[in-house]
Design a protein around this nucleic acid. Structure first.
Lengths: 341, 341
DNA sequence: TTGAAAGCGCTAACAC
DNA sequence: GTGTTAGCGCTTTCAA
């Protein structure tokens, strides 16, 4: 079936491309009502669908938004092991779908891939996850493509970004445990020096201790990959430090690993250990026991990201930075420390 | 920064667009080595990236593969609650990324959305999930876009598809439980009459019973949504039928719901109930206890889907149907029935 | 080996 | 109101 073009429609209606283009784009005021009707009929009859390649070439939008996940770590190939992305992207997709856009999903693993992405497909905009790296920013900045940065702690004023109040969130998490009577609290996290986000979470952890006059101890900080596996393997070390009674994990996925190890090790959660995670991924509520965590309403954030990127594209986004709060979702992995009861 | 075009490169090198086009597309034999070098240099120097809109308009590929998830149920907006999609798409993305393609992700909720997807973006191909519906097939068929159907049980000979040996897989799952001494085995599944896939799984379940001379009983079949929530809520009914000792769930996500209810209800898994799931999603191994399930190596399947769709596009895919086997992943939610020990 | 030019489907300025 | 036309960036045929 040969493609039906705007020309065909024009021919059928005995008019010109321009007129058809007008009605397609809703500039109905420039066309006689009768012509409008005729064109609309022809479109329906032929099943005509405008080519966005052509539209995009002609300088209008491609109706394509890039969702870009940098993954410098080449060894990891799967983006969705961390359910955070899945849920976030679900939200973006949902919002943009309703606005007539589609998502181009891409993992990029080298600095200059952005150029490719942006230019190749004439993206109308891009949502980019977790960039702290200056090289990348520079590259991103050199393209005029409207961009929204998710969870990127950068100081450049000219980027739009959407972040969490990470310090505060981490403070709340730690504080919850402290209020439950815990004092020896482990922090299990990704590599802090590589991520401003994580260092914020460390700050919040420290502040909670400080405000409660609990001394900070380096030995309670465990850094590794943000994976289930790391959570699992590091748990041995946590158990080895006999005085630890609670742990803050900076991602649910870490918490799952910890939980699983402890349970396999015969420990009771939350009786022997209180655990609080971070993110409130979908899985948090399907675990047993259900994970207490710092909720960030991921899919809602995704939807909002969709909204913001569209605003940026339409030049109607005011705030450069959108800061979102978290809330503690108290479920079944934390409880008052026995000795403090 | 204005876009660098093929014209700019031509100008810089003092040649024509055609020549530049040749070297871009590797038809180096038609160009003098010296010119090739010059052009390549200019490309590097300017950071030129070909526009796929233009390329696609000119009749070449868009390097865009649609990944389409039909979701007629409008109320559900999130595609990634079922981790199956996440993992599968991860695999597709990984494979296609390495081949220079990107993925356009789209949930479609009405029949004619396909047209939009395919035509709007001049997709080079499409991977479409779970279509049994004839109307849709008809629409899909009328477009010449190379298409791969995932888990669609259809008889049309002219579609490429990639399926599981569902009957066999379900047989194996049920049989495992039977070999462990179980006879009263529940089957928790989606609505069977709406899905040929699920009816195959029912068939496998029945065959396993039959070959072991166990009578089939309608009261052991539980149909609902393929969600955690349904798994959770239906468990009450399962517990109510005091003789049931094991359950086959046709999706891991269902199994999770069941596990969680049972554990909350004070039941021991696998001591009181043996459970086997389906899919081997990532979560299966992070649960406690780890879920025994029928593995289909989802992300591998995704990669293969990427390979196949590319083959179809390049006209080198021979088999219309790719059938994949499953294997039992024995973990910790099944065990020999006590009374049978 | 290289270049000129037509055409892919669409938009928008401009003329009628 | 409507039609004409010149691009948008690229490929490809055909000549040179």
């Amino acid at each position: 079936m040969k493609r039906v073009t705007i020309n065909d429609i024009a021919q059928i209606c005995g008019t010109s491309k321009a007129t058809v283009s007008y009605v397609i784009n809703g500039r109905v005021s420039k066309v006689s009502p009768e012509m409008v009707r005729k064109v609309e009929e022809a479109i329906k009859a032929t099943g005509y669908v405008p080519s966005l390649s052509a539209k995009s070439l002609a300088g209008k939008g491609s109706k394509l938004i890039g969702v870009i996940i940098p993954q410098m770590d080449v060894s990891k190939k799967m983006i969705f092991e961390n359910p955070f992305y899945s849920e976030f992207i679900s939200g973006i997709e949902y919002y943009l779908r309703n606005a007539g856009y589609s998502i181009v999903l891409r993992v990029v693993n080298s600095d200059n891939c952005f150029a490719d992405m942006m230019m190749k497909w004439n993206l109308d905009g891009a949502v980019v996850f977790g960039i702290d790296n200056d090289k990348m920013l520079q590259i991103l900045g050199s393209y005029k493509v409207p961009t929204l940065l998710i969870d990127s702690y950068i100081t450049h004023k000219d980027f739009y970004k959407m972040n969490l109040r990470d310090e505060e969130a981490s403070f709340m998490a730690t504080n919850l445990l402290i209020q439950d009577g815990h004092e020896k609290i482990a922090l299990v996290t990704g590599k802090i020096d590589k991520s401003v986000l994580l260092s914020k979470r460390l700050d919040g952890y420290k502040r909670a201790l400080k405000e409660n006059n609990i001394p900070f101890e380096e030995r309670f900080i465990f850094q590794g990959d943000v994976t289930y596996e790391y959570g699992f393997s590091v748990s041995q070390k946590i158990v080895a430090q006999a005085d630890i009674t609670a742990v803050v994990a900076t991602a649910d996925i870490l918490a799952f690993g910890i939980m699983n190890y402890l349970q396999l090790d015969g420990k009771k959660i939350p009786d022997d250990f209180s655990i609080i995670g971070f993110d409130d991924t979908y899985q948090a509520k399907i675990m047993y026991p259900k994970l207490t965590t710092v909720g960030q309403n991921i899919s809602k954030r995704g939807e909002m990201a969709g909204e913001i990127i569209l605003n940026i594209i339409h030049d109607s986004q005011k705030e450069k930075e959108t800061l979102m709060s978290c809330e503690i979702i108290k479920r079944d992995t934390t409880k008052v420390l026995k000795s403090a009861e």
